[in-house]
Write a protein that binds this DNA or RNA. Structure first.
Lengths: 143, 143
DNA sequence: CAGAATCCTATGAGATACTG
DNA sequence: CAGTATCTCATAGGATTCTG
């Protein structure tokens, strides 16, 4: 998830524009590698974005405040996560030109819209982690 | 996300068991690195798990069927994703001892429970990808 | 067909030091 | 304080080959 650029794993090999596929996908959706949903999902899937988003759900935070809230993130990763989220329009950055500079990050309206689906997933994780741990133990025993 | 083992980034440095913290978290939850929710979220965050889960939501699939549904996954990664999901109790594996062996994967009851929160997120991604792309273009221009 | 075994590279991400 | 710049290492993950 570097600086940007595309993400195409498969160069969309075949599919000349000419025989525009009369019966291409009979049933559901075999996932297109450059499907926009996958593109977006990959982002929430990274190690830190969701943590940052949930932190900012409690209101604007300064750089160091977020770092305190997520103790094991490095400055390097926090900076990059902020940039990626800002690029995606999920958070906004505001600089206060004080003596030691101070920067505040806050959710944008778009960013706020992800909180509900995200919270649903967090609740699921919270309800399920016991069952998952149990399954893991059982699995590891039989192996 | 190798074979297992722990994932502790920070060794939970301080916090001797003795002064059991009278005022430890004044407000919300500064994220504990080995919080179970994070552990679970990290898994759904990997590149392939969610795709596999959503594929199996349409019913049991064989190995090669899933591979056709997700064209750009390698056998290596598909095998590993299957194993991780099985270990977590999200999917079940059933072997049919036919001449060329055939293996079917299906969601467990636990695995089914993640579909709703997951679908909510997919719907969010679907509704938002246009706004996100727009934000990215705007961002890249001013940079 | 459904994997297991190897090999190899791209990159995610920590640690550290420097700067306006 | 809020970053940027390097260096470095671990590992996610692709390509290829082999097997029951």
């Amino acid at each position: 998830m570097g600086q940007g650029e595309v993400n195409v794993t498969t160069p969309v090999s075949g599919e000349m524009p000419g025989h525009s596929s009369l019966k291409q996908q009979p049933k559901k959706w075999p996932f297109d590698p450059n499907c926009p949903v996958r593109d977006v999902l990959d982002r929430i899937g990274d190690k830190w974005s969701t943590l940052v988003l949930v932190t900012l759900a409690n209101g604007p935070h300064r750089f160091s405040a977020v770092q305190r809230a997520i103790p094991d993130i490095s400055k390097r990763m926090l900076t990059q996560t902020f940039r990626d989220l800002e690029r995606d329009g999920m958070i906004a950055r505001q600089v206060f030109p004080t003596k030691p500079p101070s920067v505040e990050y806050r959710l944008t309206p778009l960013g706020e819209t992800i909180l509900k689906p995200l919270a649903a997933l967090v609740r699921w994780a919270d309800r399920s982690h016991a069952a998952i741990n149990h399954a893991r133990l059982a699995y590891d025993e039989t192996t």
